[in-house]
Design a protein around this nucleic acid. Structure first.
Lengths: 200, 200
DNA sequence: TAACTATACGGAGGCTACCTCCGGTTGGCA
DNA sequence: TGCCAACCGGAGGTAGCCTCCGTATAGTTA
């Protein structure tokens, strides 16, 4: 009878402290997973976050839930950074910086994504669709802004850039792949700037 | 330079019971890793093998050592099967059966190989080189035998077949990929038989 | 065949991590 | 200010990790 249409009784707004703890846990889980892989100790994650182990388990009932949430959180941070960069840098610089960020992001999240894929749980397809969409949107806003200023050529497709970035990050698993990837990204940017209406 | 893959010089021959236990452990570890991923309980592996946990750790001091050995053992089993098939079947049938086996093998070992790759330990490059070489040799013997009988075309390259197999097993992570892969392999065999000197 | 010993076995034990459960605390609201 | 639903935290029982060392035995020698 509580006529409130509460479509998401489950997703009721978190209390302030709960929200704070959840955020801290996600950040610390990201660090721990980057350092020790997804087998990192959850008690260690709780310790880093300065909360009890019970709090961790209330927010993320299983390890998989935490891994997935940390991955999603990382992607969201990366994509939010795109907007921030656009407010602080010329759009073509923002695009280049963001793509360089992307390399570091892949470095820490590659194992994480692999773990998720290995679980062979189809529920993760939704996650990957979401992640792809967020990244697509981030690139699009960067490319559109850069195109609008004429600093890069106008015929650049965001989807192509995603594929190029993915390919660049696949170059190798060997030590030093990150530097190689960054050099390739600089090359890619030169290509994007070549023949731009408004050269720097 | 002594061959890297023949440790008999460095390591003294195992006692009969030790050899038996080691073999059993590898088989049981393969089963356990296939069922629960590489995070499977090592005590459970020891229980399956009917040995004490101490025995497991003596043979494989770390989890990684056991994972790697189980992987290598699986590859060796697969490649040995190639020779067995050649003695029991016409060569072209042997080739086809072996490639179908390969799909099942990839199904159980995919996660295992991914775990090894994620460890980013360059010591595993030797392992992958060895594995690739064994598989290359197995395919070559099958292809050569089948070519010699004229049941498949003579211009087939073993290395191409490896790439084709790899590609076929990459088609997807979705449920049912194994059936799809097997259909593709049948197609591939038809292609190999097309224009063979001695049609069936 | 019997005695010998290098080698291997097995599991107890100390430790850490997992996850649950529940008494205590607190943010947000009336 | 006072109330209480929501949240916190960690004790505790279970399970897995890995080491260590006393016991058993395969293979050898006399």
């Amino acid at each position: 009878m509580s006529a409130v249409t509460t479509p998401d009784a489950a997703e009721r707004a978190l209390r302030a402290d709960a929200k704070r703890n959840r955020e801290t846990l996600l950040v610390c889980a990201g660090q721990a997973f980057a350092e020790h892989g997804t087998a990192a100790s959850l008690e260690d994650v709780a310790r880093r976050a300065g909360v009890g182990i019970g709090t961790l388990y209330r927010h993320f009932p299983t390890r998989d839930a935490l891994v997935e949430a940390a991955y999603r959180h990382g992607v969201e941070g990366l994509c939010d950074a795109a907007e921030l960069l656009l407010t602080e840098q010329p759009p073509d610089i923002a695009l280049e910086l963001w793509m360089l960020d992307f390399v570091g992001y892949v470095a820490t999240k590659r194992g994480l994504a692999a773990t998720l894929k290995l679980s062979a749980d189809d529920s993760h397809t939704e996650l990957f669709a979401y992640v792809h969409e967020r990244i697509r949107a981030a690139i699009k806003s960067l490319v559109d802004a850069a195109s609008a200023t004429g600093r890069i050529r106008a015929d650049v497709d965001g989807a192509d850039l995603i594929r190029a970035l993915g390919g660049i990050c696949m170059v190798s698993d060997q030590t030093g792949w990150q530097d190689q990837a960054r050099r390739l990204i600089s090359l890619l940017m030169d290509g994007l700037r070549y023949g731009a209406p408004t050269p720097a």
